[in-house]
Design a protein around this nucleic acid. Structure first.
Lengths: 356, 356
DNA sequence: GCAATTTTGGCAACCGGTTGACAAGAGCGG
DNA sequence: CCGCTCTTGTCAACCGGTTGCCAAAATTGC
């Protein structure tokens, strides 16, 4: 009497189920029937090139085309564990630094037939770890861009599946980082050539690995050029943070500034200009990263370009090599990307006060 | 005698397999063994609240916690077809318009325990369709941001699984669009109040649905304010495209411009300023979208803000409602988001040539 | 205290591929 | 023409959950 199987087509349930039963979901069993072979033969024909004879291969491919078959990724993933998917975790999707990284990773991923899954950690090490764990379950590998978590946590993840880190070096885990020395060297020499004697570095977050590297590079470049390097701390690496740090920068008496990133540089420039300072006539400003919009400012921002897109692409390539068994030769080690100075209008010669 | 199961740990194969066999992959069978119940009971306890008694529930949950079990998403997806995943396809990851959309979608997705999968169509309708098809196989639903493909293609996709469209209206498919009228009305009235008589609209791509809407809104707002509206075509909706169109804009004799998007506006402003024009003294420029960086320019760009983040979030919420069976009341129809004028420095009163 | 009813847990089939083992068939030399 | 090797297709088990059906157990009513 009870008839639990009735699908009254009006219910949302029925509507939801429809697609799966409908068309477009041919299985290897359907193909096998059409081609008159065994399902496993179909499986081999479709994924192990050369394992079946040329003529059954063709037979099967035709049948597959006719039914417009596509593999069910889950069915494939279940026994193999491979998903043709990789994860990318960024600290903050809002932060333009990551845009290019995402794009680079996405592009090379697609090129090599991998799908990108994106997650955000909201700048929290805990959230980041959670997200990473979750991704590990579904993705074949993971890219961590500027991770906030411990080295140990990263290594633990890397023990499960291939992991590539961007913007940080972790012992035993392959990484892709921009080599800041060249770019910073160019920036500092350029400032020195323009007559600056004391230049300030506006630091990023205290726990940022990258900020530490940039400060190191800055210090040694200044030493080399016999300039006085002073360090100013910022509250947060954003436009707003740049605004807030303007007063501190001025009080150092520096005539040029290298900021930890472009956002800080832009905020700083805005605030200084609002206070009547002329850029670059009274103070030179150099940013870092060459993010989208760095050339929207007036004057356009001089900046040390990090090849973010290439970092993303490089990390993806690295990861995919690992996944596909290539590049076993050097499973770890650091891939250094070159940085370079992009000279625009916000840096230049200091004009004496009288010359204004 | 034959021992086919031997894993020689030295081979890369073994290394690859390791993670799956290692720790961290407890199954419901393991839990069942520990808790002394049947696997199916475990399955029920974990996914059908209330289906098993409170005390076995607890028993099972403890066992699960102890083994730190996590479901294998593929195993779950295989019989059910549900993946707790949704796709987002954008035309161009480079385009900052989409950044906020991505972020909005990602955020609400994560909040509701769904994972975002991102794809890019490279502005090509064909690529877009391919990507969409591929996603359909793995995702529970799809968000199309500013899709380039035919209405028919979109409807075809929507027949398979829930689809939500952003920045376009497609009969029979739910969509989220910014209602441009309010924002454009404010912009045009503001320009009118500043004494402008003839204003130009720099159009976007010819096939863009959104560009057509913006032009319509512009025309009718101009009519309402008794201003003369002229239309200028652009080659591409980028900073570069904006530069290229500067000459055409000037030749219309318009004293104010509304651009299809901020990139065009920024390029236009750069080129005009490079040619010696003062903004806004000689020409007012208004952009569209309020993208990241719109306030980096000098003067900062006046723009009609599209609530892109909210569009992304709204579309995700809509889609997830659909997936979770909520909101059946209005499975289709358009969700309109309000636009508003963000008045910054690039628009204002026209100064007579003599007043310069 | 017993029958009727509702809970609760177990069994087994299934989702759609993959893969090791094996046997039938093809190709070959002698 | 026979026996050998190599290729090619089939069988069956498996990945890890989900779910319909049924029966045992617990609860309820009288």
């Amino acid at each position: 009497m009870t008839e639990p199987k009735i699908h009254s087509p009006a219910t949302p349930e029925a509507a939801k189920k429809q697609p799966r039963d409908g068309k477009g979901n041919a299985t290897i069993y359907d193909i096998a029937k059409v081609a008159g072979v065994n399902p496993s033969t179909v499986s081999r024909a479709l994924s192990k090139p050369g394992r079946v004879s040329a003529k059954t291969q063709k037979l099967i491919q035709d049948a597959a085309a006719e039914l417009n078959y596509q593999v069910n990724p889950f069915a494939r993933a279940l026994p193999t564990g491979r998903t043709n998917t990789f994860g990318l975790i960024v600290a903050d999707i809002t932060n333009p630094t990551f845009f290019d990284i995402i794009r680079g990773a996405q592009t090379t991923g697609t090129l090599r037939d991998y799908t990108l899954v994106l997650a955000e950690s909201a700048e929290s090490a805990a959230t980041e770890l959670t997200a990473a764990r979750r991704m590990m379950a579904t993705a074949d590998g993971l890219i961590l861009a500027s991770p906030r978590m411990d080295d140990d946590d990263i290594r633990a993840l890397a023990r499960d599946k291939p992991v590539v880190v961007i913007n940080r070096e972790v012992e035993g885990v392959p990484s892709v980082i921009p080599d800041v020395r060249k770019g910073i060297g160019e920036a500092v020499r350029s400032l020195a050539a323009n007559g600056h004697k004391r230049i300030a570095f506006v630091a990023g977050p205290a726990q940022s690995w990258m900020s530490a590297r940039r400060w190191e590079g800055f210090e040694s470049a200044c030493e080399w050029s016999r300039l006085e390097a002073v360090r100013v701390e910022s509250t947060k690496p954003t436009v707003d943070g740049g605004r807030q740090v303007a007063r501190d920068v001025l009080s150092t008496g520096a005539t040029a500034v290298l900021a930890y990133n472009d956002l800080l540089a832009i905020g700083l420039m805005q605030e200084l200009q609002a206070g009547g300072m002329a850029v670059p006539d009274q103070i030179s400003i150099v940013g870092f990263d060459d993010i989208f919009g760095a050339d929207f400012t007036t004057p356009p921002l001089t900046t040390v370009r990090s090849p973010l897109g290439e970092c993303g692409a490089g990390a993806a390539a690295r990861l995919l090599d690992l996944l596909q068994g290539k590049g076993n030769a050097e499973p770890e080690g650091t891939l250094q990307m070159e940085t370079e100075l992009v000279l625009r209008g916000s840096s230049g010669r200091l004009l004496a006060a009288g010359q204004r």
